[in-house]
């Protein structure tokens, strides 16, 4: 007997959705849509810029080698499979 669970869920979901929509309608959430377009643009602050360290560069080189190795491995596996497979 599974219908009671489904019907309960559907009923709760519908009730919550309608209640929220009704609240939004009466709360003015669908008005002033022009101002809403600009909301994400408020409070923009630029991140701090700081100089590079020598050690950091070496770490990046090492990771770059790791990435190239990953690419080379991918290419190697492909070539091997195509020629011997």
């Amino acid at each position: 007997m599974y219908y009671p669970y489904f019907i309960t869920y559907m009923g709760i979901g519908l009730a919550i959705s309608l209640a929220v929509f009704y609240w939004a309608l009466n709360n003015g959430q669908f008005k002033d849509q022009q101002r809403a377009r600009f909301l994400p643009l408020a409070d923009e602050t630029a991140p701090i810029r700081i100089r590079a360290s020598r050690l950091g560069r070496y770490e990046i080189y090492a990771l770059f080698v790791l990435a190239v190795a990953g690419l080379a491995l991918s290419a190697g596996v492909l070539i091997f499979a195509l020629t011997r497979g």
């Binding site: 990771l63 790791l66 990435a67 990953g70 690419l71 491995l73 991918s74 290419a75 596996v77 492909l78 499979a81 195509l82 497979g85």
Partner: peptide, 19 residues
């Protein structure tokens, strides 16, 4: 052969995750 290719592509994504 396609499964081999897929695994090799997985290496790239794993390397990307580590980076």
């Amino acid at each position: 052969i396609y499964y081999i290719t897929r695994a090799s592509l997985g290496v790239m994504i794993f390397c990307g995750a580590l980076i």
